Amino acid sequence: MEIKTIREALLWASRFLQDAGTRDPRFEAELMIRHVLQMSRASFMASLPDPISVEAMQEVESLCRRRAKHEPIQYMIGEQNFYGRDFLVAPGVLIPRPETELLVEQIMLFASRIWNQGETLDLVDIGTGSGAISLTLACEQPSWKVSTVDLSPDAIAIARQNAARLAVENRVRFLQGDLVQPLIDLGEHVDILVSNPPYIPSRDVDELDVEVREYEPRLALDGGDDGLDCYRRICAALPDVLKPTALVGFEVGIHQAQDVAELMMQSGVIDEVSIFPDLAGIDRMVIGVRHKPNS
Rank of each mutant, 00 (worst) to 15 (best):
F44E: 04
L186F: 10
W144N: 13
I270R: 03
I77D: 00
D50S: 14
I275L: 08
A132W: 10
Y215R: 08
E28V: 03
E214N: 15
R173V: 14
L193C: 14
V248L: 03
E101C: 04
L238P: 03
Y199M: 02
D185C: 04
V269K: 00
R97A: 00
Q141I: 05
Y83G: 00
G21K: 00
M108E: 15
Y75P: 13
V93F: 08
G78K: 07
E8A: 14
S43I: 01
V172H: 14
K4C: 11
A132L: 12
D178P: 05
T128A: 15
V190C: 12
T22S: 00
V180F: 09
E188D: 13
M57H: 12
C235V: 05
L137G: 06
D209R: 00
L186C: 09
A68D: 04
Q141H: 04
G281D: 10
C230L: 06
P98N: 02
T136Y: 08
D122W: 09
L94A: 01
C139D: 06
M39Y: 05
G92P: 06
D185K: 14
R173I: 13
A257Y: 12
E119M: 07
S143D: 14
T22W: 01
A257C: 12
W115S: 07
I33F: 07
L183H: 12
C139W: 09
D191A: 12
W144T: 12
Q18W: 01
I95G: 00
I133V: 15
E59Q: 15
A56P: 07
K69N: 09
D178A: 09
P142N: 12
G21D: 00
G224C: 09
Q266A: 14
F276A: 05
P217V: 04
E251V: 03
L37I: 06
V248D: 01
E71Y: 11
I234A: 07
I3R: 14
D271F: 02
I184Y: 10
D278Q: 03
R232L: 11
E272C: 08
Q117W: 05
S143M: 10
I184F: 10
D154C: 07
W12P: 09
L109H: 08
L94I: 01
L175N: 11
V248N: 02
Y215H: 15
P98D: 02
L102E: 08
A261N: 09
L94G: 01
V89I: 11
A157P: 06
Q38S: 14
A220Q: 04
A159Y: 08
A167T: 12
Q161H: 14
R284V: 03
P91R: 11
D86M: 05
R41D: 03
P72D: 04
F27D: 01
P239N: 01
I156D: 09
K292S: 09
I33V: 13
D225E: 15
M32V: 15
D24C: 00
G223C: 05
E119Y: 04
S267W: 02
R160G: 13
Q58S: 13
